[in-house]
Design a protein around this nucleic acid. Structure first.
Lengths: 131, 131
DNA sequence: TATACTGTATATATCTATATGCACAGTATA
DNA sequence: TATACTGTGCATATAGATATATACAGTATA
């Protein structure tokens, strides 16, 4: 399975963190169902051209947070998490990042009305680019 | 002058970076006009309970980016930047962070319609909390 | 001129992310 | 059983970001 994991090595965000966030989005968003095998740490490390340790760090974090299960010798698999938890992760993640964006806009002295205008513009451009 | 600079020492974002961003917002947003003296690095360091070096790093970055002017012995002052540049900084900063938030929502498998609903909810709560 | 402010420079410390190598251990399967 | 996959553990190295202390230098002004 070809996973859409893409990392940026220049980003201020740590690589393991980028991996964690992307898997969280894929799992909570319903693109990866319980039991689906993840790539082995060696394979993912090779694909992303990063060290095994970095991949392992990401998988450990994901396991601690309950999104995946690893078993030695077998591999790593998407955990069986409740629909409720998925929803909670989705809602809080998205709500927080959107709220933060709005707060930033306000700190730049934009009015709520102006923020709304810019936001709707962005949505419009996404609709076009989507197809 | 009492500046509304607030930092979080737990944040993943570097302290000097938080300071830079907040001053940029204050200057580009029009809350600080050209010539206004900034607090000396020692005063701001004491207020924020951080080292002088960190404050200096922030001021150096702000000077490189053209937002402030420092002169040894005299102090640090808001630079005289054009209205156009201010506008550009405002627009790009806010547009980018909003777009990034929308992209994150999409990665969680939200539809554009759902993102809009959440966004409007946030705006509503901001209106109330504003007064 | 004395002093009390400004910013400047340097050497060092600490933390985090990342990388490397190697040995170990569990599992599947030809 | 042999082999080739899985994940685990550990010790160490390196680079970069971040923070600190301390001493130095310019400026304003009583």
């Amino acid at each position: 399975m070809e996973l859409p994991i893409r990392i940026s090595k220049d980003s201020r965000e740590p690589i393991y963190h980028q991996i964690v966030n992307q898997f969280k989005a894929l799992i909570a968003g319903g693109h990866l169902s319980a039991g689906t095998p993840l790539p082995s740490i060696r394979v993912l490390s090779k694909d992303l051209e990063i060290s095994i340790i970095t991949t392992r760090r990401a998988y450990q974090d994901l396991e601690v947070q309950g999104f995946i299960k690893t078993s030695q010798g077998k591999g790593t698999f998407v955990a069986d998490i409740s629909e409720d938890l998925k929803q909670e992760v989705k809602v809080t993640s998205v709500y927080n990042i959107l709220e933060n964006a709005v707060d930033t806009a306000l700190s730049y002295d934009y009015s709520l009305e102006q923020v709304k205008t810019i936001f709707l513009e962005i949505l419009k451009s996404k609709e076009k680019g989507d197809i």
